[in-house]
Amino acid sequence: MAWFDDLLFTYQNLAVALGVNGLLALSMYVVLAVGQLSLGQAAFMGLGAYSSALMSLQLGWPFWAVLPLSCVVPVLFALAVGGPTLRLNGVYLAIATIGLGEVLRGVYLNVDVLGGAMGLSGIPEAAPLWLIYAMLALAVLVLWQVGKSGIGRAMEAMRLDETAALSMGVNIRRYRLATLCASAVLAGLAGALSAHSTDFIGPNDFGFEPAVTILSFALLGGIGSPFAPVLGAWLLTLLPEVLRPLADVRLVMNGAVIVVAVLFLPRGLLAWRMPRHVRPGRAA
């Protein structure tokens, strides 16, 4: 039965990756939805992964206590850096968030308790698969409900024209900070879940390339609804599994997807936008 275990093992990893990448794509979606290109998702994921791993390995805390706390850490980080960072616009924000990610990577590499370049291993595989998908489903549901409400409307308005949205009374700063925190929660969750399903994490799992890969998920799917980025993540995760030759050039594919999506598919593959109001039937 060795082959069966093998199969299970292979697909177990794939199933975890699909769920985790779905969460990461949503974490990107949240900030793109307000028109911000913040590339800190991989960094938030790293914070969630490292803090959860430390709590499990060093403190021996149970997973159900570790999981929520591992979202708190990235949120605290988002709150700490959010004030000055979110004043930045456009490319400056993108560059600053890449910089923050690199600072964190430097910290992982140089702090002994974080394992340096070797990373941390022996993390208990305590995250059940169903939990990953339950979290993903919950995230989609919450984002769907919020997206259809006045909050979603204000977010869309911000993305389309910040000045006009401001003049309509949208508190731009608060929305930016709140979306950054939501993004941090989702990415931190993804980090903790993936750390506790693969037993090993290292500093390069959360650097520049993962940050760009997460962007490719959201751009391929689009941001018309929370389903779109998840679709993008799944396609980009599955493709190299189905088309084996693609596995070697996975990053090439991710990069090319971004180029093609921005140039030719500005609304993503799933261009369908969630309706905020259904046109009422013919009036009586």
Partner: peptide, 22 residues
């Protein structure tokens, strides 16, 4: 500066943003 890709109704609803507090 209308929100070009939103519906006309959604545009008008953004004007009510400050009054919505759910």
């Amino acid at each position: 500066r209308v929100f070009a890709t939103m519906s006309v109704l959604d545009n008008a609803l953004t004007g009510l943003h400050a009054r919505l507090s759910a």
